[in-house]
Write a protein that binds this DNA or RNA. Structure first.
Length: 348
DNA sequence: AACGCGGGGTC
DNA sequence: GACCCAGCGTT
C-alpha cells in the first residue's frame, strides 16, 4: 500500500482534533473562503487575520467589493503585499456580478476562470466551499507529499506539481474533500514544517512516511536554488510645506503599482533638480532605511527640505497627518521614515 | 519555463 | 542571513 493511500483516514482524524479556529472556517461561504484564499497566497495565517476581519467588515458581499473605490481597496490591502491580488480580487468580483448574475460560480472551471484564481485557489474554493473533490496543491502540500513518498523531484517544477495533483486526485475522500485539503495544509503549516525541522513525533503519518522511516526528513523537499536579489541604492525625499508632506502615485504597473510614495530616485539619477527651485545644498540628510523585497533590496537615504506649497508637480499631493493615515496607501517599504514624517507633521 | 511581484516570521 | 510562506499573471 502506497503512503498516499494510507493517508486520508489518519489525517482526517488528526485534523478533527487539531484544526485551528480561523474566521473563514466559521462560516465557509464561497465569498468568505475566496477572500481568505486570495489573502493567504504566499502569506501566513497570522499575517492575514486582521486584514481579513477589516476587509469583510468593509466589503461583506461580492457586490460591496465590486463597488469599492480603488483607493479604499488599496488602503485595505496596505502592508499585506502582492497588491495585484487586491486588484484581481475586485476584477473577479465584477466578473461575478457582470457574468454570473452576482452568484459565485459553483464549478471548478467557473471558479478557475476568475481573475487571480489559479489551480491551487480554484481547488481550495471548489473543495472547501462546494464539496467538489479536487486537490488543492500549495507549498505545504508539496512538502508533505514529497516527504511522505521520499520524492526527490524539484517541487518548483511544473511537472512535479502536476504529478502530485494527479496522485492526490486518486486518494482524495469524495465525501469531505475540503476537510482533506485543509488537513494537508494544516499538517504542513503546524507539523511537517519547512527548513528541515518537522515535528515528526506529532505527525499522524509518521508510521508510513518514507522520509521519516528512512531518517531522511532533512532531504525533502528538493527545491531549485533562487537567483540572488539585486541591491538598489535610493535617495528618498521627504518634502514638507505648510500643507503637509509630498506624496506621489507610483506607476500603474510593476512594483507597488498604484500605491503612494515619498518621491525617490536611484542614486545617480537626477529627477529632483529644478523642482521647487531647490539648490543641492538645500537638502538635509535625515535618516537611512533598508527594505528587503523578494527580488530587490532597497538601501535608502532620506533627505528633507521645506518648500512653498505652490508649484507641486503634476500627480503629486500634499498629505497632512490625517490624510496620510486615512487616505493614502503607502507601502511598508517606506516605514523607516514614518516616524520622522509623523513627528514633523505633528507640529502643524 | 522563467520571471516579477511584498512583507514578515522563524530558524 | 537564509528560507519560505494556503501562488498568479505575464512573457
Amino acid at each position: 500500500m502506497q503512503p498516499l493511500e494510507q493517508l486520508p483516514i489518519p489525517l482526517l482524524l488528526w485534523y478533527r482534533e487539531h484544526a485551528r479556529v480561523l474566521p473563514w472556517r466559521q462560516d465557509p461561504t464561497p465569498y468568505r473562503v475566496w477572500v481568505s484564499e486570495i489573502m493567504l497566497q504566499q502569506t501566513r495565517v497570522a499575517a492575514v487575520l486582521d486584514y481579513y476581519r477589516r476587509f469583510l467588515q468593509a466589503a461583506p458581499t461580492v457586490q460591496d467589493l465590486a463597488a469599492l473605490p480603488e483607493d479604499a481597496l488599496m488602503k485595505l490591502w496596505q502592508g499585506l503585499g502582492y497588491y495585484s491580488r487586491a486588484r484581481n480580487l475586485q476584477k473577479a468580483a465584477r466578473q461575478i456580478v457582470d457574468d454570473w448574475g452576482g452568484v459565485f460560480p459553483n464549478t471548478y472551471e467557473g471558479i478557475r476562470s476568475l481573475a487571480g484564481v489559479g489551480d491551487y485557489t480554484a481547488g481550495a474554493i471548489a473543495s472547501i466551499a462546494f464539496g467538489i473533490p479536487v486537490p488543492a496543491v500549495d507549498g505545504n502540500v508539496l512538502r508533505v507529499v514529497t516527504r511522505l513518498t521520499a520524492d526527490p523531484s524539484d517541487i518548483l517544477a511544473a511537472a512535479t506539481k502536476k504529478r502530485i495533483t494527479a496522485a492526490l486526485q486518486q486518494v482524495i475522500p469524495t465525501a469531505q474533500p475540503g476537510q482533506f485539503n485543509q488537513a494537508m495544509m494544516e499538517l504542513g503549516a503546524t507539523v511537517c514544517l519547512p527548513n528541515g525541522a518537522p515535528l515528526c513525533e506529532k505527525c499522524p503519518a509518521a508510521d508510513f512516511c518514507q522520509a521519516f522511516q528512512q531518517g531522511r526528513t532533512g532531504e525533502f523537499p528538493v527545491k531549485a536554488p533562487k537567483k540572488p536579489r539585486r541591491i538598489e541604492k535610493r535617495r528618498v525625499y521627504l518634502i514638507f510645506s505648510d500643507q503637509g508632506v509630498a506624496l506621489r502615485r507610483r506607476p500603474a504597473r510593476g512594483l507597488l503599482a498604484g500605491l503612494w510614495e515619498y518621491p525617490n530616485e536611484l542614486e545617480g539619477e537626477d529627477s529632483m533638480s529644478g523642482l521647487f527651485g531647490l539648490t543641492p545644498d538645500a537638502w538635509k540628510k535625515v535618516t537611512t532605511g533598508k527594505h528587503i523585497f523578494s527580488h530587490i533590496e532597497w538601501h535608502m537615504t532620506a533627505y528633507t527640505a521645506q518648500v512653498e506649497p505652490d508649484a507641486l508637480p503634476e500627480g503629486w499631493v500634499w498629505a497632512d497627518r490625517g490624510a496620510l493615515e486615512r487616505d493614502y496607501a503607502v507601502p511598508n517599504a517606506f516605514s523607516a521614515f514614518s516616524d520622522a514624517v509623523a513627528q514633523r507633521l505633528g507640529y502643524f
